[in-house]
Amino acid sequence: MSKDEDRMVDLDGVTTGGGGGVAHGASSNNTLSCLLSCPDHVLENVLENVLVFLTSRRDRNSVSLVSKSWYRAEAITRSELFIGNCYAVSPCRVIERFQRVRSLVLKGKPRFADFSLVPPNWGAHFFPWVSAMASAYPWLKKVYLKHMLVTDDDLNLLVSSFPGFKELVLVCCDGFGTSGPAALANKCRQLRLLDLIDDDVMDDEVDWISCFPETGMCLESLSFDCVEWLVNFEAFGATGG
């Protein structure tokens, strides 16, 4: 009931307010009259500010279908990117559409990969993604990968491409050894979170835990249930926890 009332008031506001604005604006200020008569132009001025308050993926998708200018504004302001299937879209199209991505969620193989039902060379390589984003998103801070093939080279590229990198979560990923996490520990000075969950990690005989710097570390959370060998807890104690 009250919602219907609101709606009526809203619509009235647009017609009377807008109409009044035209009549009044035409006499004094052309820009103003244009602004008042085309509400979508008014909104364009502050649309980016409005979109900052919208974080859900569904809302953002709806916004980008409203009009061309809304599509552009949404693309500029989307900082969190979710790609549920790495083959649904190419990295090229992603970096063409979104310019300011700070956080990426990317999923690869289907879930039945957990039961060895996907052949070993099936794909879901992280490489094309990390190499495309290396130049496009220098401010990338967070990466969450699930069921992806990630190599040590990929992790090295990630380390060297994103100076402000903070969070890496790898769930059910394979293709890398302990030297990948070692590079992160060694060079990612801003690293806050490193989660290795149910990954298939190869043994490179690298004492990767002792690669964390002894001082000036930002690390708040570290988990590596799936890494079974060569964890030097003494070295970890030395980093100050």
């Binding site: 993926r57 998708n61 790609i83 549920g84 299937n85 649904a88 879209v89 999923k107 289907p110 879930r111 699930k146």
Partner: peptide, 8 residues
């Protein structure tokens, strides 16, 4: 873009 594996 929204495509995701079922049951994931």
């Amino acid at each position: 873009w929204d495509d995701e594996w079922a049951f994931d």
